[in-house]
Design a protein around this nucleic acid. Structure first.
Lengths: 231, 231
DNA sequence: GACAACCTCCTGGTCGGACCAGTGTCATCG
DNA sequence: CGATGACACTGGTCCGACCAGGAGGTTGTC
């Protein structure tokens, strides 16, 4: 189910229904949406709520609203990054390659951040990384491991001090936690290998940028393999 | 001026005014915004329009709206990527490091894409890269060189076939062209060095992933140095 | 018949005013 | 002193009216 919570606002509910219709292909790019008044009647809500929902879709890059004209489904190529989590959450099953793509991006960032972290990390950050690895050694379940792995990633990004990169990381986070089940195979007890993380932290402590980067790339490519083997 | 067009909707105008207030620092993270009713009175518009504006700010990640409680300014770390171009354009002068940060991200992507491209590129793509380098050898002005350099970047990303990464690239593009003047020092005739690009294309043609990556990283770090030397 | 101006009906945009639904505060009561 | 509940906020939803831009048919002219 793509609607975990029912306490969402009316506008949110409608926005997500329409989103699913668009991302799921029932509404195709170029199609006209019903008018706000029609949608309001159809969903038995007020037009204001429909308007709010439509504006949300617009900021997601899913529709174009034109004063005087009909509201149309946008081309996906124009989609904004905001949409990515939704694309993965809804369309992930239909097109699993996008999951791997996102994971690949995370791998790229991991490698790069580890390299920088080896020269920039302060003792406190390194301790936090070590603490995370310690917790990852005894995970309660794959979900917790996944969360810790992301925290590790986030800490590495934070060490680089690159704030825009942290924003990129946040998008990845939304993708991950929007489609977390699909990434779970990576985090099964008999599959997940913690050694690269250990190596990375050791390398960072030893200021060995190359080794740190290598270790993280190793982790990423192993995880990617798991993802590709279990479609 | 940050308001080029006056034909924007009322909600848009208000959203942009509030955005500027937040990004500009007049409203700090944690601060309470006035209530919707107060804002409506202050700006002499209807509460619906204010609500629409506030929801836009929320999807940008700039505020948190809580039913029953006050609307507060969010932490910048939570801001959406959509906002990044504006952050750079407005905050770039006050905090030039963010320009370098963005450039660094581009460098990371360049290195990674070049590496992948060396194993994946088809002849047509390689030809396009060569053509771009040829054009870059005789630029009419720095601006054209900048545009070609971005096109080169985009082509590399396209070769990897990673569509989400292309979306990330699109965000970088918006940042670049929103603050293009600030990046121009890199593209001065006596500064810009085309050799890394040549090397990259050669390495890709030779299927030498490591060399391709190295060359692009060389270009990125050289450009970064220019950026840091001319604040 | 070709073409332009116009009219009309559709669309989304704004309005204001009512009421519902969560939150925080503060006086009151045990 | 602490729990409780009334109250005065906050945002959320609704209604119904009107404004304003766009598209297509109609009419009038040439």
């Amino acid at each position: 189910m793509t609607t975990p919570v029912n306490r969402r606002s009316v506008a949110d509910r409608i926005a997500h229904r329409l989103r699913d219709a668009i991302v799921g292909g029932r509404l195709r790019p170029g199609d006209e949406l019903p008018s706000e008044r029609e949608l309001a009647e159809k969903y038995a809500v007020n037009r204001s709520s429909v308007r709010e929902a439509l504006h949300r879709l617009e900021t997601w890059g899913l529709v174009h609203i034109r004063h005087g004209g009909a509201t149309r489904v946008a081309e996906f190529l124009e989609a904004s990054l905001e949409l990515l989590p939704h694309l993965v959450a809804v369309g992930g099953r239909a097109d699993p390659s996008i999951l791997a793509d996102v994971h690949e991006i995370r791998g790229m960032m991991l490698g790069w951040c580890a390299e920088k972290a080896a020269t920039m990390a302060d003792p406190a950050s390194i301790s936090r990384l070590e603490e995370l690895v310690r917790q990852m050694a005894e995970p309660r379940d794959p979900k917790e491991l996944q969360a810790l792995d992301y925290a590790f990633f986030q800490e590495l990004v934070a060490i680089t001090g690159n704030r825009p990169l942290a924003l990129f990381g946040k998008v990845l986070r939304e993708v991950y936690f929007g489609a977390r089940e699909q990434y779970l195979p990576i985090y099964q007890r008999d599959v997940f290998d913690l050694r690269p993380h250990r190596k990375t932290v050791e390398a960072i402590r030893a200021r060995d940028a190359k080794a740190a980067s290598e270790a993280m790339r190793e982790h990423a490519s192993a995880a990617l393999k798991v993802l590709e083997d279990r479609p």
